[in-house]
């Protein structure tokens, strides 16, 4: 019984940390640029397919990282230039345009890889014993990497020069421009960073899920709910949102069943959107 509770508790931690890392890309783009990138999930999908390709070419798993980053950066740059830049002040239009993009990317993936499932072998198979329980190694590593990525991002955003420029751009684009910051280039870089983070998340979860063209849909909504609950523009907000959404889902799934967990997530998101649309931890 004890082992059950401990394992379920770690399941909650796992759910929260993977959700956080899968939300980062969306959070960066939405929080900093005000653009809701509905195609976020498709960039996760691209990461997952890169992982699949890397394995099918018998390369080491980590090669998937540069491959994904390169692909997502290229694609992100093109998308930003063609679709996002002309629409920065039209939030609904970016929403529907990126929705079209998600459809497009999904169909392209289907044309290249077919509609079927692909399986990515877990690079670190097996389980590890701790706290009197047994837990899959790869998931433990994933928890650690997720927290590391979030921490690095938070420190970089808070301390680095680029981070402070981005903060300047977000709080007052005209002023930032006047201070010699190229808002246009910075916004493009931010968008690319967001797509790359999404791809990175894809590489991380690829060994655990069925890799297929439709997989992206699952991620974008949950990620959006995390932002809604957590609030925009801060890593602590993101983590608290992931903790609320992922935690509630996982905890209720553990205590009751998955249906209740899913309903709880939807209701929680709606309540937050309605009652506290700025989230738990809002910027400024």
């Amino acid at each position: 019984m004890d082992a059950l509770i401990v394992t379920q508790a770690i399941n909650v931690v796992y759910a929260v940390s993977t959700l956080a890392v899968l939300t980062l890309g969306l959070a960066v783009i939405f929080g900093l640029l005000g653009v809701l990138n509905i195609a976020h999930g498709e960039f996760v999908m691209i990461g997952a397919y890169c992982a699949y390709l890397t394995q099918s070419w018998n390369w080491p798993y980590l090669v998937a990282l540069p491959l994904t980053l390169a692909l997502c950066a290229l694609l992100g740059a093109a998308v930003e230039r063609i679709m996002i830049r002309p629409l920065y002040r039209r939030p609904f239009d970016t929403l529907v345009a990126t929705w079209g993009l998600s459809l497009l990317l999904r169909k392209i993936a289907e044309a290249i890889f077919g509609p079927g499932f692909h399986s990515v072998t877990i690079p670190l198979p097996g389980t590890v014993q701790f706290l009197g329980i047994e837990y899959p190694i790869y998931r433990v590593v994933l928890i650690a990497v997720s927290f590391a990525v979030a921490a690095v991002l938070m420190i970089w955003y808070g301390r680095s020069r680029t981070g402070s420029r981005i903060r300047a751009m977000v709080s007052n684009p005209e002023l930032a421009q006047a201070q010699g910051i190229s808002v246009r280039r910075l916004a493009a870089a931010t968008f690319i960073a967001g797509t790359c983070l999404a791809g990175l998340g894809g590489v991380m979860v690829a060994p655990l899920v069925p890799v297929q063209p439709f997989m992206g849909l699952d991620y974008v909504l949950r990620a959006f709910f995390v932002l809604v609950v957590g609030g925009l523009g801060s890593v602590p907000g993101l983590l608290s949102g992931a903790a609320a959404i992922g935690g509630v889902d996982s905890a209720i799934s553990a205590a009751s069943n998955a249906t209740d967990g899913y309903f709880a997530v939807l209701v929680l998101a709606i309540l937050f959107l309605w009652l506290k649309p700025r989230g738990l931890i809002a910027r400024g």
């Binding site: 394992t7 379920q8 399941n11 849909l217 909504l221 553990a254 998955a258 249906t259 899913y262």
Partner: peptide, 21 residues
């Protein structure tokens, strides 16, 4: 005997842990 919502983005860590116990 348990069911997961059809058409929802399901994950199975919790179910599997329950089965294990």
């Amino acid at each position: 005997e348990e069911y997961v919502p059809y058409g929802a983005p399901n994950k199975f860590e919790e179910v599997v842990t329950r089965i294990k116990s």
